[in-house]
Amino acid sequence: MARIIETRRLTPVTKYFRIEAPLIASSARPGQFVMLRVREGGERIPITIADYDRQLGTITIVVQEVGATTRMVCALGTGDDILDVAGPLGGHIDIAPGGHVCGVGGGFGSAALLCLMREFTARGDRTTAILGARNKELLILADELRPLCTHLEICTDDGSAGFRGFVTQRLAQLIEGGAERRPDSVVAIGPMAMMRAIAETTRASKVKTLVSMDPLMVDGTGMCGGCRVTVAGKAKFACVDGPCFDAHEVDFDVAMRRNKAYVQEEKQALDRVACLERRESR
């Protein structure tokens, strides 16, 4: 059981939560995730630890409503409890100190840049965060991230804020922009399509690139193998071997196909929850 102590709507479909989880807060590192469950009979879903405060014993998560469970999470408010929160799971992002790290966030993935940028800036790295969204309204956490990194880049598809275009285009400019701007390593966290595009963007220049894979998970502890992703031709379990992998070695085709395995069932579940919500609101 974990108590929610702060919530905030970031966009119509994403919500920010700060929750009491002292043990997780004391050991979390950038790139790790928690498994959570909101009700008896509920699914276990993986959610990235966006940030943590070891002193206060809290962790931050940002959840995007895509289906039944994320919708139930987002219906929770301050003072509510989350039934089960287990973590931190997965390995942390491991990059040698002293370089220029560029974090690229799309959708809820931008949230994961909070602790990443904070920790890497604090240890003396140069840090650039690139945030992407379709438009200004969908952009999240820019104000929170700005003080945490050396340099913040904003990209919107329609140009309503920052650079007009995709995060990949901006990243390509940085890579070509000479030693001053070129990152030594890139960490991309966001929708699979974005991470795949980032992998292609950095492939030729061989900039070390990590992507945070988000396959379907059941237990999150290495027990089911459902989260396997193909990396350099080998099956890896994202929950124990990942979730971050070398972007240039990941087989995105397989990963994207596997994430669609339960589309039908997920839709039924969502309809059921929506139906329940309607009944309750009546």
Partner: peptide
């Protein structure tokens, strides 16, 4: 082995036993 529909017995049994997928009325795990 990575085709959809292929899984470990642990995944199959966990979805059903631990997560209750045999009862879609009560369980959200498919």
């Amino acid at each position: 082995e990575n085709l959809n529909g292929v899984m470990s017995a642990n995944e199959f049994l966990t979805r059903i036993n631990l997560m209750g997928a045999y009862d879609r009325e009560k369980s959200d795990t498919p």
